[in-house]
Simulated scan of single mutants.
Amino acid sequence: MKALIQRVSTANVEVDNNCVGSIEYGILAYVGLGHDDNLQSTQRMIDKILTYRIFENDSDPAKRGKLDQNVQQVGGGLLLIPQFTLMAKTDKGRRPDFGGAMAPDSAQALFADMIVYAKSQYPKIASGQFGADMQVTSINDGPLNFLLEII
């Protein structure tokens, strides 16, 4: 499983010109599920994202400029977007190989379970719609982007 996380000032996702998820300050996370992923790996990824320290501590002048707070500590939101293309193999040729991505039916069910778990851990969760043509808009803050992997 991979997640590309971005610290954002704001982010939203639309499907058919309707907003299906939005956050203000927080993390936009694109999530790719692989063949070996399961409920436990998605829970570990959510736990990692929610506790990953990519926010500055503005309240402590001694720590100003240091990334020592997580999204929960700053009261930010988390927008989860299913993104099978993160699982693409790109080391050969000029066309991505998506064979590493989980089959759509299984991935849809697992992504839904991932959202349920995320909401049980933190209230400020929003998500995209699996399998839809999504239009994601965000304003990167920093920009700060990190690729997280759970093996």
Rank of each mutant, 00 (worst) to 15 (best):
L79H: 03
Q43N: 10
F130T: 02
D68I: 08
S127P: 07
T51V: 02
Q72M: 13
K48L: 10
Q135I: 02
S41P: 06
N38Q: 11
T90N: 14
Q135K: 14
V31S: 02
A29V: 05
L79M: 11
Q108W: 10
M45T: 01
E24V: 00
P104Y: 13
A126G: 08
V31M: 10
D113T: 06
A107F: 00
L33A: 07
A29P: 00
Y25T: 11
K124V: 02
T51K: 13
T90D: 03
G32W: 12
A88L: 09
A118V: 08
F55C: 05
N145D: 05
G77H: 00
P143C: 09
R53G: 04
Y25L: 09
Q40N: 13
Q135W: 02
T51F: 06
N57S: 04
H35L: 15
P96S: 12
I23Y: 04
I46R: 05
G99Y: 06
V136A: 08
M87L: 15
A107R: 02
K63I: 01
P82C: 10
T90P: 04
D37S: 11
L78S: 02
L80P: 09
N57G: 01
A101V: 05
S59Q: 14
Y25Q: 05
G100E: 13
N38C: 12
K89T: 12
F111Y: 14
Y30H: 10
V116F: 08
V31I: 15
V136G: 04
I27Q: 03
S138N: 06
S41T: 14
A112W: 11
D47E: 13
S22C: 01
K124P: 02
D113S: 14
D68P: 01
M114Y: 08
A132I: 11
K48T: 04
A101C: 04
R44M: 14
R64C: 04
I23K: 07
I46Y: 09
N145C: 01
L80T: 03
V136T: 14
K66C: 00
Q40L: 10
Q108R: 14
F55L: 02
N70T: 03
D68Q: 05
K66L: 14
S138F: 13
V71W: 02
I23W: 07
K89M: 02
Q73N: 00
L79E: 02
D113W: 10
L67M: 14
G76H: 08
D37I: 12
G142N: 00
N38T: 08
I27Y: 09
L79Y: 09
L28I: 04
V136C: 10
S138K: 01
S127G: 08
T42P: 05
G76W: 10
R44Y: 15
P123M: 02
S22L: 12
R53N: 06
D36E: 15
G77C: 06
P61C: 01
E56R: 15
H35W: 14
S59E: 15
T51L: 13
L79I: 11
D105P: 04
K48M: 09
D97P: 06
L78F: 07
D113Q: 14
I81T: 08
G76Y: 09
G93W: 12
F55T: 04
I54F: 12
K119S: 01
Q83I: 05
D133Q: 15
S106K: 10
S127N: 12
I54L: 15
K119Y: 02
Y122W: 07
Y25P: 01
G100R: 04
D36W: 12
G75H: 05
I23C: 05
L67T: 09
Q108F: 08
